[in-house]
């Protein structure tokens, strides 16, 4: 919890909610968006996404937020660690 807070808590939670809806919609998941644990892993255990989900999700994030993900990003694993981590990355780098 030592990370600097760059957004208000409210804005951060709102972005998480938006992202959860995007994930469920794009990947056609059975889960309800509000049921996604913001701290649980997105891939493998947790939400259980796979590499093809990653491709789809990257495309959706690029369209919605104007961020192109890439796999040689050293923080790629960190970025996809959880809904909260992904939302944090988007908040810091979004262009739209």
């Amino acid at each position: 919890m030592n990370q600097p807070i760059t957004l208000s808590e409210t804005a951060a939670r709102a972005l998480e909610t938006e992202l959860a809806h995007l994930i469920v919609e794009v990947l056609h998941l059975e889960n309800k968006p509000e049921s996604i644990d913001p701290l649980a892993p997105l891939f493998g255990e947790g939400l259980g996404l796979d590499s093809i989900d990653a491709l789809e999700l990257a495309l959706a994030i690029s369209r919605r937020f104007g961020i192109e993900l890439k796999s040689d990003d050293e923080r790629n694993r960190q970025i996809f660690a959880s809904l909260r981590a992904l939302a944090g990355h988007i908040a810091a780098h979004r262009t739209k």
């Binding site: 590499s51 990653a54 491709l55 990257a58 495309l59 192109e68 993900l69 890439k70 796999s71 040689d72």
Partner: peptide, 11 residues
């Protein structure tokens, strides 16, 4: 190198 996401492939 990596060539997974569209941006990887383009780069």
């Amino acid at each position: 190198g990596p060539a997974f996401y569209p941006r990887d492939i383009a780069a």
